[in-house]
Design a binder for these strands. Structure first.
Length: 274
DNA sequence: AACGAGTCCTGATCGC
DNA sequence: TGCGATCAGGACTCGT
């Protein structure tokens, strides 16, 4: 499932190949993944546009276009965005195919269809909440003071639930929430209000560390994740807790516990995380 | 207001 | 071997 490191990897992969490329035509578009505008408007607005510099905002991929619009893609759980030769066979569940002037195609595929495609001026998309408000990004310099918000730090919510809230921290999902809590030695069930300032600081740096390490490994290959060229990442081998319920904690050797928090499977060490 | 629960969706995996 | 049940979860909607 693509979280910040996977999306960042894809963006870095695709950025140099898309920059200055002209979008010749929309070869195909499945309206079910399109949130805005209508399919007809999308085709009209996209054709002929030239790609600017690809960027990431949380888990969203932003492609600024010469028309002033942003082509925005969220990969949901199973989405992939890849640059392929036009002669490559089109895989099932490919919902968007964009013909580029390089002869290649930008293909968006998403079997589970939790992802979405949006096109429009950035200000309008933000105003209409098609792009939801986003908290600080663990890769940003300004993240040092995180969370720096009294409403967050005084909350009665479980800290695991807080990490999954995109308004609190942009780009964190279930995998890296568990990994960061493990690295910071904090129990996911702890309420936000129970964390001391130094524990928040520990958690903040843990988020940055696990994200950067996963990017170094080109993302976690779990489920359907592929990088911008369709290859797997290798961060899965380095996960300490996610997907390892019942297996020994790499720190103390005791079996890891699993519990549902905020509707998500959460894995942690009862001994090491307090 | 804030939080939990239900919802969408398909593929992998499991048990019989 | 085959098939139905179960599980995975990001972000939205709805109800408490």
């Amino acid at each position: 499932m693509p979280e910040l490191p996977e999306v960042e990897t894809i963006v870095r992969d695709l950025r140099p190949h898309l920059r200055e490329r002209r979008l010749e035509a929309v070869i195909s578009l499945n309206p079910v993944v399109l949130r805005f505008p209508s399919a007809d408007s999308f085709r009209g607005a996209a054709a002929g546009a030239v790609f600017g510099i690809l960027a990431r905002r949380g888990k969203f991929i932003h492609a600024p276009l010469s028309t002033g619009d942003h082509l925005v893609i969220h990969l949901g759980m199973t989405g992939t965005l890849t640059l392929e030769d036009g002669s490559e066979p089109v895989r099932p569940h490919t919902h968007l195919r964009l013909q580029l002037d390089s002869g290649q195609e930008l293909r968006y595929r998403d079997p589970r269809r939790f992802g979405r495609v949006i096109l429009g001026p950035l200000a309008q998309l933000t105003r209409s909440r098609l792009l939801p408000p986003m908290g600080p990004d663990p890769l940003d310099r300004a993240f040092a003071g995180w969370p720096g918000n009294g409403r967050v730090t005084s909350s009665a919510r479980a800290v695991k639930a807080v990490l999954l809230d995109q308004e609190v921290v942009a780009g964190c999902g279930n995998i890296y929430a568990d990994e960061a809590l493990y690295l910071a030695r904090l129990r996911p069930t702890r309420t936000a209000a129970s964390l001391s300032a130094s524990q928040w600081a520990r958690l903040g740096s843990a988020l940055t560390v696990v994200m950067k390490e996963a990017i170094r490994r080109r993302g976690t290959s779990f489920s359907d994740y592929r990088d911008g060229f369709g290859a797997r990442g290798e961060a899965y081998e380095s996960l300490m807790v996610y997907g390892r319920a019942g297996l020994p904690c790499v720190r103390c050797g005791r079996p890891l516990a699993a519990q549902r928090i905020a509707g998500r499977t959460t894995v942690y060490c009862r001994w090491c995380q307090r």
